[in-house]
Design a protein around this nucleic acid. Structure first.
Lengths: 208, 208
DNA sequence: GCGTTAACGGAACAGGAGTTCCTTTTATGG
DNA sequence: CCATAAAAGGAACTCCTGTTCCGTTAACGC
Protein backbone atom coordinates (compact mmCIF):
# COMPACT_ATOMS: atom_id res chain seq x y z
CA UNK A 1 0.00 0.00 0.00
CA UNK A 2 2.88 2.35 0.72
CA UNK A 3 4.37 4.54 -1.98
CA UNK A 4 6.66 2.62 -4.30
CA UNK A 5 10.36 3.30 -3.66
CA UNK A 6 12.11 5.62 -6.09
CA UNK A 7 13.98 3.67 -8.78
CA UNK A 8 17.65 3.45 -7.84
CA UNK A 9 17.08 3.54 -4.09
CA UNK A 10 16.77 -0.17 -3.38
CA UNK A 11 19.90 -1.34 -5.21
CA UNK A 12 22.08 1.74 -5.30
CA UNK A 13 25.34 -0.17 -5.82
CA UNK A 14 27.25 -1.25 -8.90
CA UNK A 15 25.52 -0.54 -12.15
CA UNK A 16 23.00 1.92 -10.70
CA UNK A 17 25.79 4.08 -9.28
CA UNK A 18 27.74 3.90 -12.54
CA UNK A 19 24.69 4.99 -14.49
CA UNK A 20 24.04 7.89 -12.13
CA UNK A 21 27.63 9.09 -12.37
CA UNK A 22 27.66 8.81 -16.16
CA UNK A 23 24.34 10.60 -16.52
CA UNK A 24 25.28 13.45 -14.16
CA UNK A 25 28.59 13.95 -15.95
CA UNK A 26 26.85 13.94 -19.31
CA UNK A 27 24.23 16.36 -18.01
CA UNK A 28 26.94 18.75 -16.85
CA UNK A 29 28.62 18.56 -20.26
CA UNK A 30 25.35 19.17 -22.05
CA UNK A 31 24.46 22.09 -19.77
CA UNK A 32 27.82 23.70 -20.45
CA UNK A 33 27.33 23.34 -24.19
CA UNK A 34 23.65 24.19 -24.68
CA UNK A 35 22.41 25.69 -21.40
CA UNK A 36 19.21 24.51 -19.74
CA UNK A 37 17.02 25.60 -22.61
CA UNK A 38 18.80 23.43 -25.15
CA UNK A 39 18.99 20.40 -22.88
CA UNK A 40 17.08 17.27 -23.73
CA UNK A 41 17.20 14.03 -21.85
CA UNK A 42 17.58 11.90 -24.96
CA UNK A 43 20.82 13.71 -25.74
CA UNK A 44 22.05 13.23 -22.19
CA UNK A 45 21.29 9.51 -22.46
CA UNK A 46 23.23 9.30 -25.71
CA UNK A 47 26.26 11.07 -24.22
CA UNK A 48 26.17 8.88 -21.11
CA UNK A 49 25.84 5.77 -23.29
CA UNK A 50 22.78 4.82 -21.33
CA UNK A 51 19.26 3.86 -22.34
CA UNK A 52 16.97 6.82 -22.93
CA UNK A 53 14.28 5.04 -20.93
CA UNK A 54 16.55 4.90 -17.90
CA UNK A 55 17.02 8.65 -17.82
CA UNK A 56 13.30 9.30 -18.16
CA UNK A 57 12.42 6.74 -15.51
CA UNK A 58 14.93 7.86 -12.89
CA UNK A 59 14.82 11.62 -13.40
CA UNK A 60 11.86 12.27 -15.64
CA UNK A 61 12.43 15.95 -16.29
CA UNK A 62 15.17 18.49 -16.84
CA UNK A 63 14.65 20.29 -13.52
CA UNK A 64 14.75 17.03 -11.56
CA UNK A 65 18.00 16.04 -13.26
CA UNK A 66 19.55 19.41 -12.53
CA UNK A 67 18.42 19.19 -8.92
CA UNK A 68 20.17 15.83 -8.59
CA UNK A 69 23.27 17.26 -10.22
CA UNK A 70 23.24 20.03 -7.63
CA UNK A 71 23.04 17.56 -4.76
CA UNK A 72 26.04 15.83 -6.24
CA UNK A 73 27.93 19.12 -6.56
CA UNK A 74 27.06 20.10 -2.97
CA UNK A 75 29.07 17.17 -1.68
CA UNK A 76 32.29 18.57 -3.11
CA UNK A 77 33.08 21.49 -0.82
CA UNK A 78 36.28 23.49 -1.23
CA UNK A 79 38.39 24.10 1.88
CA UNK A 80 38.33 27.58 3.34
CA UNK A 81 41.45 29.73 3.38
CA UNK A 82 42.60 31.39 6.62
CA UNK A 83 44.87 34.42 6.47
CA UNK A 84 44.36 35.82 9.97
CA UNK A 85 42.63 39.00 8.83
CA UNK A 86 39.06 39.50 7.63
CA UNK A 87 40.04 41.35 4.47
CA UNK A 88 42.47 38.62 3.52
CA UNK A 89 39.94 35.85 4.13
CA UNK A 90 37.15 37.54 2.22
CA UNK A 91 39.45 38.51 -0.64
CA UNK A 92 40.41 34.85 -0.94
CA UNK A 93 36.74 33.95 -0.99
CA UNK A 94 35.86 36.61 -3.57
CA UNK A 95 38.69 35.52 -5.83
CA UNK A 96 37.66 31.89 -5.56
CA UNK A 97 34.07 32.74 -6.49
CA UNK A 98 35.22 35.01 -9.30
CA UNK A 99 37.54 32.38 -10.72
CA UNK A 100 34.76 29.81 -10.63
CA UNK A 101 32.22 32.05 -12.36
CA UNK A 102 34.72 33.33 -14.94
CA UNK A 103 35.88 29.82 -15.83
CA UNK A 104 34.32 28.82 -19.17
CA UNK A 105 33.13 25.45 -18.00
CA UNK A 106 32.30 26.08 -14.35
CA UNK A 107 30.76 29.46 -15.12
CA UNK A 108 28.49 28.05 -17.80
CA UNK A 109 27.46 25.26 -15.47
CA UNK A 110 26.57 27.62 -12.65
CA UNK A 111 24.66 29.90 -14.99
CA UNK A 112 22.67 26.95 -16.32
CA UNK A 113 21.96 25.59 -12.87
CA UNK A 114 20.79 28.96 -11.56
CA UNK A 115 18.59 29.41 -14.61
CA UNK A 116 17.06 25.99 -13.98
CA UNK A 117 16.40 26.93 -10.37
CA UNK A 118 14.66 30.11 -11.50
CA UNK A 119 12.12 27.96 -13.35
CA UNK A 120 11.51 25.12 -10.93
CA UNK A 121 10.76 25.08 -7.21
CA UNK A 122 12.45 21.77 -6.51
CA UNK A 123 15.64 22.77 -8.27
CA UNK A 124 15.54 26.07 -6.38
CA UNK A 125 15.47 24.23 -3.05
CA UNK A 126 18.49 22.15 -4.08
CA UNK A 127 20.31 25.32 -5.10
CA UNK A 128 19.52 27.02 -1.78
CA UNK A 129 20.85 24.02 0.12
CA UNK A 130 24.00 24.12 -1.99
CA UNK A 131 24.65 27.75 -1.13
CA UNK A 132 23.63 27.36 2.51
CA UNK A 133 26.47 24.85 2.82
CA UNK A 134 28.99 27.10 1.08
CA UNK A 135 27.99 30.15 3.12
CA UNK A 136 28.14 28.23 6.38
CA UNK A 137 31.60 27.04 5.39
CA UNK A 138 32.88 30.61 5.14
CA UNK A 139 30.91 32.25 7.96
CA UNK A 140 33.49 31.34 10.65
CA UNK A 141 36.02 33.78 9.21
CA UNK A 142 33.65 36.60 10.05
CA UNK A 143 32.98 35.18 13.50
CA UNK A 144 36.72 35.09 14.12
CA UNK A 145 36.91 38.72 13.05
CA UNK A 146 34.24 39.52 15.64
CA UNK A 147 36.33 37.78 18.30
CA UNK A 148 39.40 39.72 17.21
CA UNK A 149 37.38 42.93 17.49
CA UNK A 150 37.72 43.73 13.79
CA UNK A 151 33.96 44.10 13.36
CA UNK A 152 31.18 44.89 15.85
CA UNK A 153 29.60 42.33 18.15
CA UNK A 154 26.38 40.88 16.69
CA UNK A 155 27.51 41.13 13.06
CA UNK A 156 25.57 38.68 10.88
CA UNK A 157 28.37 36.47 9.56
CA UNK A 158 26.35 34.78 6.84
CA UNK A 159 25.14 38.14 5.58
CA UNK A 160 28.70 39.39 5.24
CA UNK A 161 29.69 36.30 3.26
CA UNK A 162 26.67 36.75 1.00
CA UNK A 163 27.61 40.41 0.53
CA UNK A 164 30.98 39.35 -0.86
CA UNK A 165 29.70 37.12 -3.64
CA UNK A 166 26.41 38.89 -4.41
CA UNK A 167 27.95 41.55 -6.69
CA UNK A 168 29.85 38.88 -8.61
CA UNK A 169 26.70 36.88 -9.30
CA UNK A 170 24.92 40.12 -10.15
CA UNK A 171 27.54 40.88 -12.76
CA UNK A 172 27.37 37.42 -14.28
CA UNK A 173 23.58 37.09 -14.34
CA UNK A 174 22.14 40.57 -14.46
CA UNK A 175 24.32 43.48 -15.49
CA UNK A 176 26.92 41.68 -17.59
CA UNK A 177 29.83 43.77 -16.33
CA UNK A 178 33.26 42.12 -16.52
CA UNK A 179 34.22 39.60 -13.86
CA UNK A 180 37.85 40.56 -13.33
CA UNK A 181 39.96 40.21 -10.23
CA UNK A 182 39.71 43.92 -9.46
CA UNK A 183 35.96 43.50 -9.13
CA UNK A 184 36.44 40.58 -6.76
CA UNK A 185 38.84 42.55 -4.59
CA UNK A 186 36.42 45.48 -4.51
CA UNK A 187 33.65 43.16 -3.29
CA UNK A 188 35.79 42.03 -0.39
CA UNK A 189 36.86 45.59 0.48
CA UNK A 190 33.27 46.83 0.40
CA UNK A 191 31.98 43.98 2.56
CA UNK A 192 34.71 44.58 5.14
CA UNK A 193 34.08 48.33 5.17
CA UNK A 194 30.35 47.84 5.62
CA UNK A 195 30.83 45.21 8.31
CA UNK A 196 33.26 47.47 10.24
CA UNK A 197 30.74 50.28 10.06
CA UNK A 198 28.18 47.99 11.67
CA UNK A 199 25.88 47.71 8.65
CA UNK A 200 25.43 43.98 9.31
CA UNK A 201 24.84 44.29 13.05
CA UNK A 202 21.32 44.66 14.48
CA UNK A 203 22.34 47.82 16.37
CA UNK A 204 21.94 49.83 13.18
CA UNK A 205 23.94 51.74 10.63
CA UNK A 206 26.18 53.45 13.16
CA UNK A 207 29.58 54.29 11.76
CA UNK A 208 31.73 52.50 14.34
CA UNK B 1 20.38 41.24 -53.45
CA UNK B 2 20.31 42.85 -49.97
CA UNK B 3 19.13 41.01 -46.89
CA UNK B 4 15.36 40.80 -46.71
CA UNK B 5 13.85 43.17 -44.13
CA UNK B 6 12.67 41.66 -40.84
CA UNK B 7 8.93 41.00 -40.91
CA UNK B 8 7.15 43.85 -39.15
CA UNK B 9 9.72 46.49 -40.00
CA UNK B 10 8.28 47.76 -43.28
CA UNK B 11 4.72 48.33 -42.12
CA UNK B 12 5.03 48.70 -38.35
CA UNK B 13 1.73 50.56 -37.91
CA UNK B 14 -1.82 49.43 -37.21
CA UNK B 15 -2.28 45.70 -37.10
CA UNK B 16 1.41 44.88 -36.82
CA UNK B 17 1.76 47.05 -33.70
CA UNK B 18 -1.41 45.58 -32.19
CA UNK B 19 -0.10 42.07 -32.77
CA UNK B 20 3.25 42.90 -31.18
CA UNK B 21 1.59 44.40 -28.11
CA UNK B 22 -0.78 41.46 -27.72
CA UNK B 23 2.01 38.91 -28.14
CA UNK B 24 4.35 40.63 -25.69
CA UNK B 25 1.58 40.90 -23.09
CA UNK B 26 0.69 37.25 -23.59
CA UNK B 27 4.34 36.28 -23.36
CA UNK B 28 4.69 38.11 -20.05
CA UNK B 29 1.59 36.33 -18.71
CA UNK B 30 2.87 32.96 -19.85
CA UNK B 31 6.32 33.61 -18.37
CA UNK B 32 4.78 34.51 -15.02
CA UNK B 33 2.72 31.33 -15.03
CA UNK B 34 5.13 28.72 -16.38
CA UNK B 35 8.59 30.31 -16.40
CA UNK B 36 10.86 30.17 -19.43
CA UNK B 37 11.10 26.41 -19.39
CA UNK B 38 7.37 25.86 -19.72
CA UNK B 39 6.92 28.52 -22.39
CA UNK B 40 5.86 27.53 -25.87
CA UNK B 41 5.10 29.89 -28.67
CA UNK B 42 1.90 28.13 -29.70
CA UNK B 43 0.48 28.84 -26.24
CA UNK B 44 1.54 32.48 -26.48
CA UNK B 45 -0.20 32.76 -29.85
CA UNK B 46 -3.39 31.27 -28.41
CA UNK B 47 -3.37 33.72 -25.46
CA UNK B 48 -2.71 36.67 -27.76
CA UNK B 49 -5.49 35.49 -30.12
CA UNK B 50 -3.02 35.62 -32.95
CA UNK B 51 -2.00 33.10 -35.57
CA UNK B 52 0.64 30.65 -34.42
CA UNK B 53 2.46 31.18 -37.70
CA UNK B 54 2.81 34.89 -36.98
CA UNK B 55 4.61 34.32 -33.72
CA UNK B 56 7.00 31.82 -35.26
CA UNK B 57 7.67 34.06 -38.24
CA UNK B 58 8.30 37.28 -36.32
CA UNK B 59 10.12 35.92 -33.29
CA UNK B 60 10.97 32.34 -34.12
CA UNK B 61 12.27 31.27 -30.73
CA UNK B 62 11.69 31.73 -27.03
CA UNK B 63 14.91 33.68 -26.42
CA UNK B 64 14.19 36.09 -29.27
CA UNK B 65 10.70 36.74 -27.94
CA UNK B 66 12.03 37.37 -24.44
CA UNK B 67 14.68 39.71 -25.82
CA UNK B 68 11.97 41.72 -27.57
CA UNK B 69 9.93 41.77 -24.37
CA UNK B 70 12.95 43.18 -22.56
CA UNK B 71 13.38 45.95 -25.09
CA UNK B 72 9.76 46.82 -24.52
CA UNK B 73 10.22 46.80 -20.75
CA UNK B 74 13.34 48.98 -21.01
CA UNK B 75 11.27 51.82 -22.40
CA UNK B 76 9.25 52.09 -19.22
CA UNK B 77 11.68 53.68 -16.75
CA UNK B 78 10.57 54.61 -13.26
CA UNK B 79 11.40 58.11 -12.02
CA UNK B 80 14.16 58.40 -9.45
CA UNK B 81 13.44 59.61 -5.93
CA UNK B 82 15.52 62.44 -4.39
CA UNK B 83 15.70 62.81 -0.63
CA UNK B 84 18.78 65.03 -0.34
CA UNK B 85 20.90 62.40 1.41
CA UNK B 86 22.68 59.37 -0.07
CA UNK B 87 21.27 56.92 2.45
CA UNK B 88 17.75 58.15 1.81
CA UNK B 89 18.13 57.92 -1.97
CA UNK B 90 19.67 54.46 -1.93
CA UNK B 91 17.14 53.17 0.59
CA UNK B 92 14.38 54.33 -1.74
CA UNK B 93 16.12 52.51 -4.59
CA UNK B 94 16.61 49.33 -2.57
CA UNK B 95 12.98 49.31 -1.46
CA UNK B 96 11.80 49.83 -5.03
CA UNK B 97 13.92 46.94 -6.27
CA UNK B 98 12.82 44.75 -3.39
CA UNK B 99 9.16 45.50 -3.94
CA UNK B 100 9.52 44.67 -7.62
CA UNK B 101 11.30 41.37 -7.01
CA UNK B 102 8.98 40.35 -4.18
CA UNK B 103 5.84 41.09 -6.18
CA UNK B 104 4.33 37.81 -7.39
CA UNK B 105 3.88 38.92 -10.96
CA UNK B 106 6.84 41.25 -11.47
CA UNK B 107 9.18 38.99 -9.52
CA UNK B 108 8.26 35.93 -11.55
CA UNK B 109 8.70 37.91 -14.75
CA UNK B 110 12.16 39.14 -13.79
CA UNK B 111 13.22 35.66 -12.71
CA UNK B 112 12.05 34.21 -16.02
CA UNK B 113 13.74 36.91 -18.04
CA UNK B 114 17.04 36.53 -16.20
CA UNK B 115 16.86 32.77 -16.64
CA UNK B 116 16.30 33.25 -20.35
CA UNK B 117 19.29 35.59 -20.54
CA UNK B 118 21.42 32.97 -18.80
CA UNK B 119 20.74 30.61 -21.70
CA UNK B 120 20.96 32.88 -24.71
CA UNK B 121 23.53 35.46 -25.74
CA UNK B 122 21.12 37.75 -27.55
CA UNK B 123 18.70 37.85 -24.62
CA UNK B 124 21.65 38.52 -22.33
CA UNK B 125 22.61 41.59 -24.34
CA UNK B 126 19.04 42.91 -24.13
CA UNK B 127 19.08 42.33 -20.35
CA UNK B 128 22.38 44.15 -19.96
CA UNK B 129 21.06 47.14 -21.88
CA UNK B 130 17.97 47.13 -19.68
CA UNK B 131 20.05 47.31 -16.51
CA UNK B 132 22.54 49.78 -17.96
CA UNK B 133 19.62 52.18 -18.37
CA UNK B 134 18.32 51.60 -14.86
CA UNK B 135 21.75 51.97 -13.28
CA UNK B 136 22.48 55.14 -15.24
CA UNK B 137 19.16 56.50 -14.04
CA UNK B 138 20.18 56.14 -10.39
CA UNK B 139 23.89 56.94 -10.63
CA UNK B 140 23.37 60.74 -10.28
CA UNK B 141 22.31 60.38 -6.66
CA UNK B 142 25.79 59.07 -5.86
CA UNK B 143 27.41 61.84 -7.91
CA UNK B 144 25.43 64.39 -5.93
CA UNK B 145 26.68 62.75 -2.73
CA UNK B 146 30.22 63.19 -4.00
CA UNK B 147 29.54 66.89 -4.60
CA UNK B 148 28.10 67.21 -1.10
CA UNK B 149 31.22 65.56 0.28
CA UNK B 150 29.31 62.56 1.66
CA UNK B 151 31.56 60.10 -0.15
CA UNK B 152 35.14 60.41 -1.47
CA UNK B 153 36.03 62.00 -4.78
CA UNK B 154 36.36 59.46 -7.58
CA UNK B 155 33.73 57.09 -6.19
CA UNK B 156 32.35 54.86 -8.97
CA UNK B 157 28.67 55.84 -8.93
CA UNK B 158 27.41 52.95 -11.06
CA UNK B 159 29.26 50.49 -8.87
CA UNK B 160 27.55 51.84 -5.75
CA UNK B 161 24.14 51.53 -7.39
CA UNK B 162 24.92 47.97 -8.42
CA UNK B 163 26.06 47.22 -4.88
CA UNK B 164 22.64 48.19 -3.57
CA UNK B 165 20.60 45.78 -5.68
CA UNK B 166 23.12 42.96 -6.04
CA UNK B 167 22.33 41.33 -2.68
CA UNK B 168 18.60 41.48 -3.46
CA UNK B 169 19.04 39.68 -6.76
CA UNK B 170 21.41 37.25 -5.06
CA UNK B 171 18.71 36.40 -2.55
CA UNK B 172 16.07 35.90 -5.20
CA UNK B 173 18.16 33.87 -7.64
CA UNK B 174 20.87 32.16 -5.65
CA UNK B 175 20.54 31.82 -1.89
CA UNK B 176 16.76 31.97 -1.54
CA UNK B 177 16.84 34.07 1.62
CA UNK B 178 13.74 36.18 2.30
CA UNK B 179 13.32 39.46 0.42
CA UNK B 180 11.92 41.63 3.19
CA UNK B 181 12.23 45.35 3.67
CA UNK B 182 14.82 44.94 6.41
CA UNK B 183 17.08 43.24 3.86
CA UNK B 184 16.58 46.12 1.43
CA UNK B 185 17.43 48.71 4.08
CA UNK B 186 20.54 46.75 5.03
CA UNK B 187 21.68 46.77 1.39
CA UNK B 188 21.42 50.54 1.28
CA UNK B 189 23.21 50.97 4.63
CA UNK B 190 26.02 48.65 3.58
CA UNK B 191 26.51 50.37 0.24
CA UNK B 192 26.64 53.78 1.89
CA UNK B 193 29.07 52.58 4.55
CA UNK B 194 31.35 51.02 1.94
CA UNK B 195 31.17 54.07 -0.30
CA UNK B 196 32.01 56.40 2.62
CA UNK B 197 34.99 54.22 3.47
CA UNK B 198 36.24 54.67 -0.08
CA UNK B 199 35.76 51.06 -1.18
CA UNK B 200 34.40 52.24 -4.53
CA UNK B 201 37.06 54.89 -5.16
CA UNK B 202 40.24 54.04 -7.09
CA UNK B 203 42.42 55.34 -4.23
CA UNK B 204 41.92 52.09 -2.37
CA UNK B 205 40.29 50.63 0.69
CA UNK B 206 41.27 53.48 3.01
CA UNK B 207 38.84 54.02 5.81
CA UNK B 208 38.01 57.68 5.14
C1' DG C 1 -10.26 55.90 -52.50
C1' DC C 2 -7.39 52.29 -54.91
C1' DG C 3 -3.60 49.16 -55.91
C1' DT C 4 0.31 46.93 -54.25
C1' DT C 5 2.23 43.86 -51.28
C1' DA C 6 3.63 43.37 -46.33
C1' DA C 7 1.95 40.93 -42.82
C1' DC C 8 -1.47 37.84 -40.85
C1' DG C 9 -3.99 33.33 -40.43
C1' DG C 10 -5.56 28.54 -41.18
C1' DA C 11 -4.44 23.83 -42.38
C1' DA C 12 -1.70 20.21 -43.37
C1' DC C 13 2.86 18.33 -42.57
C1' DA C 14 7.35 16.76 -40.33
C1' DG C 15 10.36 15.66 -36.68
C1' DG C 16 11.52 14.74 -32.28
C1' DA C 17 10.68 14.64 -27.22
C1' DG C 18 8.64 11.85 -23.93
C1' DT C 19 5.90 7.41 -22.92
C1' DT C 20 4.78 2.50 -22.77
C1' DC C 21 5.65 -2.35 -22.96
C1' DC C 22 8.36 -5.98 -22.67
C1' DT C 23 13.01 -8.33 -22.57
C1' DT C 24 17.65 -8.61 -20.74
C1' DT C 25 21.05 -7.79 -17.36
C1' DT C 26 22.81 -7.79 -12.75
C1' DA C 27 22.76 -6.27 -7.68
C1' DT C 28 21.73 -8.33 -3.47
C1' DG C 29 20.40 -11.81 0.18
C1' DG C 30 20.84 -16.33 1.42
C1' DC D 1 26.72 -20.13 -6.31
C1' DC D 2 21.71 -19.62 -6.99
C1' DA D 3 17.21 -17.36 -6.94
C1' DT D 4 14.75 -13.15 -6.98
C1' DA D 5 13.40 -9.00 -8.54
C1' DA D 6 15.38 -4.29 -9.18
C1' DA D 7 17.08 -1.68 -12.56
C1' DA D 8 18.64 -1.05 -17.40
C1' DG D 9 17.81 -1.35 -22.39
C1' DG D 10 15.45 -1.61 -26.90
C1' DA D 11 11.68 -0.62 -30.00
C1' DA D 12 7.43 0.93 -31.22
C1' DC D 13 4.09 4.43 -30.45
C1' DT D 14 1.88 9.08 -29.31
C1' DC D 15 1.50 13.71 -29.13
C1' DC D 16 2.96 18.17 -29.53
C1' DT D 17 6.26 21.74 -31.07
C1' DG D 18 7.78 24.05 -34.92
C1' DT D 19 7.55 24.42 -40.24
C1' DT D 20 5.68 25.05 -44.81
C1' DC D 21 2.25 26.44 -48.12
C1' DC D 22 -0.91 29.22 -49.76
C1' DG D 23 -5.05 32.05 -49.41
C1' DT D 24 -6.81 36.41 -46.91
C1' DT D 25 -6.57 40.91 -44.77
C1' DA D 26 -5.21 45.47 -44.30
C1' DA D 27 -1.06 49.07 -44.10
C1' DC D 28 0.87 52.66 -46.70
C1' DG D 29 1.98 55.43 -50.99
C1' DC D 30 -0.10 57.68 -54.57
Amino acid sequence: MGTKAEPGSVRPGGRTARVRAAVLAAAADALVEHGVHGLDLADVARRAEVGKTTVYRRWGSVPALVADLLEDMAEQSLPRVETGALLGDLTANARLVRRTLADPRQGALFRAVIAAAACDERTARALHRFYAVRIAEWAPCVEQAVERGEVPEGTDAAEVVRAVSAPLYYRMLVSGDPLDEAAADRCARAAVAAARAGAYAPAGPGRG
